[in-house]
Design a protein around this nucleic acid. Structure first.
Lengths: 193, 193
DNA sequence: GACGATACGGACTGAGGGTCCGTTTTGCAA
DNA sequence: TTGCAAAACGGACCCTCAGTCCGTATCGTC
């Protein structure tokens, strides 16, 4: 069904680059100081190939991100409660935020790099995954009676899970994972009364 | 009484660079695509001078930011209510957040550039002005009975005024200033019940 | 097995942040 | 005033990277 099936070598190289990037980002602390040249080398591929496959550095980051996010998306869109669509709104909101927080905790380095690489104005807010998440959260909030300004509230709640904030608290200040989760849960709960 | 009074030419050039940067950032839309070379040229000064005065690009941004923030700081630390220290906590929290929001609305471009220029990990969260603001907000929150996790809450509230979010809403989506202020106020109010 | 289409790869370019160092200015002191 | 060391100047220079270009190699189809 695909319009243009891509050539076998292209597909293989795309995977190789993705895997190489993943490995390199893991090996180094941060995705920040891994260059495209290094990724290409690690993948045993020329830079041209990398750029043809992903467009630019941000494209590579995005692809990796998307790959890691897929399970979460799956769980949210068609999984069982408390994440899936069958969950009552009042419980789904904290569950969603907790899932986002955990995801960011697990993928701190990558997410920081991605949120920052989107230079120019309005950085992470036009990424498709942000749009998706925001729309979803807003719609769920809307189903809770007495919630004013669900659009802004959704933004504000998501802002509380911003990658660099998470990195600051969990990384720099050493706040334990569970503490952070509890605090976010408290914060969310405080809002939904 | 100053330990090391800086030389007159140094002081003059420092001001010139600051003014030039201010002018250039205003003329261009964004601080993002103004280079250090341009700023130096506009100030009629060599690049070396710029770097000696501010350390690096981020230092220049920071200095400009600090200069613009000074009035707010003043109003918060020793001004009259509703910003000053004499204000009862319950009213001061929303006033503080509103002030921050207005500041970011007025200085969008610069603040976006600053929050992003702090590359590497834990970007804007170790800037001294963030520390100051966070500590202040946390302490004020602490004085409101029944507020759990004031430290995290302060972070989360400040996150709702993140420069790129503000830029996204006010700039990209065209949400009017007053609407945004009202939404933030609602959000804050919802939390303080 | 041949030929057009597609992909490869790495040398190359351009941009921009930051440094270096010979020259100039400053300000103190004789 | 003049002398002089310390401080500041400035712009050529360097380096790192993202991203491009184009001659060569590979694919897959007829």
């Amino acid at each position: 069904m695909p319009e243009h099936r891509s050539r076998k070598d292209a597909a293989r190289n795309r995977e190789a680059v993705l895997a190489a990037a993943d490995a390199l980002f893991a090996r180094r602390g941060s995705a920040e100081d891994v260059t495209t040249a290094e990724v290409a080398a690690e993948a045993g591929v020329g830079k041209g190939t990398l750029f043809r496959a992903f467009g630019d550095r941000a494209g590579l980051l995005r692809a990796l991100y998307e790959a890691r996010l897929a399970p979460v998306r799956e769980a949210v869109e068609s999984g069982p409660p408390p994440l899936g669509p069958a969950t009552p709104p009042r419980e789904r909101v904290p569950a969603l935020l907790d899932a986002v927080l955990c995801f960011k905790l697990d993928n701190r380095r990558l997410v920081v790099a991605l949120e920052e690489s989107a230079n120019g104005s309005a950085s992470p807010y036009q990424a498709s995954h942000y749009e998706w998440l925001h729309r979803l959260l807003r719609d769920v909030l809307e189903q809770i009676p007495g919630t004013p300004g669900s659009d802004f509230t959704a933004h504000a709640l998501l802002a509380a899970t911003r990658a660099d904030l998470v990195e600051h608290l969990a990384g720099r200040e050493g706040v334990p994972r569970e503490t952070l989760r509890a605090q976010l849960a408290d914060f969310t709960a405080g809002l939904l009364d």
